[in-house]
Write a protein that binds this DNA or RNA. Structure first.
Length: 419
DNA sequence: TCTGGGGTCCTAGGACCC
DNA sequence: TCTGGGGTCCTAGGACCC
């Protein structure tokens, strides 16, 4: 059996742990740059704040309804997530951290020997007592059905108390007939539209389609999903943690045309990718750079391009990354456009220790030691203490974060105080 | 004025190999 | 008349997730 554990309104719950006044109050969390709403408490959902709502359009509604608005505080959410995951891992060695607020747990052989409902109650208690974060749990024979069970646990929290075990065929039929097709995990907007055209309106309808049709229109991904919903496990637990691609991309505070400005941003993004790679001991073999104008500015000239560059040898040296990123940038930058967003993505990641050496092109052997020192200093003295000369040394680029809460759990100066 | 960021997987098609 | 067969690797683009 699989369990899908999901933190309820995770970001909003994190804010509430350290600010109990927010309990039973509407809370909304904004994306980077305070752009749009990416998380809502139940109260905020009830007030009709949709996911992805642009903050500036909803300003009045926030005020009128006394909605507590926060900027994203990833230092806090990331740390709280690690605590939740840590507690969950006490219950089984087989765990896949699926996202910042979700994990799949596998219980092999438990169904005959243990009462899953009881285990669920223990997990819930442990996490809520240990972190203050409320969770919902769905148990089922496959991952996709565990997702369904979790949805039921949450939707009917009054009856389920946040835990639902989906085990019998009767339960499965009932659940699939209840679940709308566009709410199925793995069915996005495009597929939902096509399926609805064919009069497929529930998860159950979907499982009645012929395999060939699903395979043809939705590839093996769709077919696997169908099997999963039928109760035949087709997705396994994926415990490996290392990422296959790493990205640093940002929207700018406003539009920029200036070559030097954007070049500095690209350099900083490349350096950030280097830091992230070194953290997981990876090197990249490919680096990709993109930039684009503001797609919402309909009367302005639009331009967007990306370019992919192979590095001559696998690297995670910020010095090299900046060099190749700028080479790419020079090729795609065009004068005369108002740029709003850019990014650097590194791909083809391989473990640092077994990289293939090149015959003629070698990484400067001094880089690796240098990077280690820079990382160590930045870690102990604060991020960005050491910058590269290609970065803006005077101005510190800042995201708009007007409603940021404290880093209660990761910074000693911002620890909660009791008066 | 203001509209996020970071991921995964799959397929088709082209270039290339023997 | 008939012009092979079996691969790999890479990339762009599309779908999806949180």
């Amino acid at each position: 059996m699989f369990a899908l554990v999901d933190c309820n309104n995770f970001y909003a719950s994190c804010e509430r742990v350290f600010n109990p006044k927010l309990n039973n109050q509407p809370v909304a969390i904004l994306s980077n740059n305070d752009g749009c709403v990416i998380a809502r408490s139940n109260e905020a959902k009830a007030l009709g704040i949709p996911m992805g709502a642009p903050a500036f359009k909803y300003q009045k509604i926030f005020e009128r309804n006394h909605i507590h608005v926060f900027s994203s505080n990833y230092a806090l959410y990331g740390d709280m997530s690690a605590r939740v995951m840590n507690l969950l891992s006490e219950f089984t060695p087989d765990m896949e951290i699926y996202s910042i607020d979700e994990a799949f747990l596998q219980f092999v052989g438990y169904e005959t020997h243990f009462d899953l409902q009881k285990i669920g109650e223990q997990m819930k208690q442990r996490v809520e007592k240990g972190t203050g974060i409320p969770i919902s749990i769905g148990f089922a024979p496959t991952k996709a059905l565990a997702k369904v069970a979790n949805r039921i646990a949450k939707k009917f929290a009054q009856q389920t108390n946040g835990i639902y075990v989906l085990q019998t065929e009767k339960q499965r039929f009932k659940a699939l007939k209840w679940l709308k097709i566009n709410d199925v995990w793995g069915i996005g907007r495009q597929h939902a539209i096509r399926l609805q055209k064919h009069n497929i309106n529930t998860a159950f309808d979907f499982t009645q389609l012929p395999d060939d049709w699903v395979r043809k229109h939705m590839t093996v991904v769709g077919l696997r999903l169908k099997k999963e919903l039928e109760g035949k496990p087709s997705l396994s637990l994926e415990e490996v943690a290392n990422k296959k691609a790493i990205a640093t991309t940002r929207s700018f505070d406003t539009q920029y045309e200036d070559y030097q400005y954007i070049k500095e941003r690209i350099s900083t993004f490349a350096i950030s990718c280097g830091e992230k790679m070194r953290k997981q001991n990876s090197c990249c073999q490919v680096i990709s750079v993109f930039l684009k104008t503001n797609k919402f500015q309909h009367n302005a000239a639009q331009y967007g391009k990306s370019i992919t560059i192979k590095t001559p040898y696998p690297t995670n040296s910020s010095i090299d990354l900046v060099k190749y990123a700028i080479q790419g940038f020079d090729k795609i930058y065009k004068k005369g456009y108002q740029y709003k967003k850019a990014g650097v993505i590194v791909m083809g990641l391989i473990p640092e220790e077994n990289r293939q050496l090149a015959l003629f092109n070698q990484e400067n052997p001094k880089h690796s030691g240098l990077m280690k020192q820079i990382d160590a200093i930045n870690k102990s003295l604060g991020n960005q203490k050491i910058k590269f000369a290609c970065q803006d040394l005077k101005r510190t680029w800042k995201m708009r974060q007007e409603h940021l809460s404290q880093r209660y759990t990761t910074n000693i100066n911002e620890i909660i105080s009791v008066l």
